[in-house]
Structure formats: C-alpha cells, structure tokens
Design a protein around this nucleic acid. Structure first.
Length: 219
DNA sequence: CTCCAGGGGGCCA
DNA sequence: TGGCCCCATGGA
C-alpha cells in the first residue's frame, strides 16, 4: 500500500468513496447497448427520456429496432440529439448484431475479435465498443471517455497521454480482482462532481481535481 | 446569451 | 495519424 502507483491509488480512493455504482444503468443488455449509442456526446438525462419513450413503444429491443423505420425511431429519440444519425445507426447496428448471432455469439469470441466486429459497424467507435465489451459482453476492457482523460491529465498519470495508451496502461496495471467497469463508473461520477468545466476548472491548481485527489491521498 | 454533454464519421493534408 | 467540420437537443 506504500508504493502503489497513481492508478491503483485512484482506484482504491474512488472505490472507497462511491462503492459499487452498478454500472451500466439499464435492466437489459439491449437497453445498455441503446443507451451507449444515445449518450454519445449527450447528457444522460437527455438519454433517459428517449429510453422511456422507446420502452413505451416496445422498441427497447434490438430485435424490434432491426425491423423499425429510422424515421419512427428518430422521433422517439429526439431528446438525445443527433437523432437522424442515431436512429439510422441504431437500426443498422441492431440488424447487424441480432443477425450475427447476438451477444451470446460475441461473448464466445476473444475480446479482440468481438471488438473488431463492433468497430466495423457505423456508429460504434472506440468508446462505445469498449462500453459494450465491458458492460454487456463481460470482457476485461477499460472504457476511456472524456472524463477519464480529463482526470488522468489532471493527476498527470504516466502512460495515459492518449485514449489508446490510457486503456492499455489501466488494463495492464489493475489486476483481475479489480472491476474495470466500476472504475470507469466512479471516474465518471467524480468527473460530474468535480471536473465539470473543461479543460480545467477555474481556481483548480495542476495535479488536482478541485481538491479531491490530494485531500484523500494525504492523511 | 454561451457552453457543453458518459462520440463518431468523413474528409483532407 | 491529426485536425476540422458536421450532427442537434436540453440543462446550467
């Protein structure tokens, strides 16, 4: 515990502060997938309205979305922004995944292969693929988002200069006993509370997260 | 009014 | 690869 690196220390601090946040929010794999696409560059509160409407219309399902008209879906997800793009992509992604054997098939593949398949779909980039791998397929994958990079940058963690290196470094640093999913969840929670403005908060000194990090590091 | 959300794709040098 | 631009609603 004396010479733990910054990533492990941050993991422990966040675990102690927030506990298990039970991410990704959602009752089914389909709801997680749809939410992951809708929340691209969009606040979660806006996504929740869309998820409610889709559920009302019995469309919170990739099998149903695969058969739906993009125009119909678009009107239900307006609150999530970019609704024309997202509607078209939701339908095509639903077709591709349900048609390829579903999550069970993707789970049976090595993480690298299921990730390549996901990244080949229009509308699934690096972060969305990581979220699906981590929260739906149960792979040991760390999700790197804007909050993650902002917090890592603020603390100045070596080996996390860009999203790709940050993911590798975290995955290689934390052991199998750690929950990469909850680490990401707690990072987002911390970001929402203490790193809302970007790239730096006013009056927040370097190597700091509005006083959070160092106050918990030093006894 | 401005800023920005749990991004991603296309294009161009 | 890396920088732009576009997609768009809703809350602060």
């Amino acid at each position: 515990m004396v010479t733990l690196n910054k990533i492990s220390r941050l993991y422990e601090l966040l675990e102690k502060r927030y506990g298990d946040l039970h991410w990704w929010p959602g009752d089914t794999d389909d709801e997680i997938l749809i939410g992951a696409i809708l929340t691209q560059n969009t606040s979660w509160s806006n996504v929740e309205r869309s998820l409610s409407l889709l559920k009302e219309k019995q469309l919170l399902s990739i099998d149903k979305l695969a058969l739906a008209e993009p125009e119909t879906v678009a009107q239900l997800i307006r609150s999530s922004g970019f609704y024309n793009q997202k509607a078209e992509r939701l339908v095509s992604i639903s077709k591709a995944i349900s048609g390829s054997g579903g999550y069970q098939f993707l789970r049976s593949l090595p993480a690298r292969e299921s990730e390549q398949f996901l990244l080949s779909l229009k509308g699934i980039g690096s972060e969305t693929a990581e979220s699906i791998l981590c929260y739906i397929l149960g792979k040991m994958v760390f999700v790197v988002d804007k909050y993650t990079m902002r917090i890592f940058g603020r603390i100045e963690i070596p080996g996390t200069e860009n999203k790709a290196s940050a993911r590798i470094t975290v995955e290689h640093t934390l052991g199998e006993s750690k929950s990469l999913g909850n680490f990401h969840a707690t990072l987002v929670q911390l970001g929402k509370e203490h790193c809302k403005t970007k790239p730096v908060c006013k009056g927040c000194p370097a190597n700091s997260i509005c006083g959070f990090y160092e106050s918990l590091i030093s006894p």
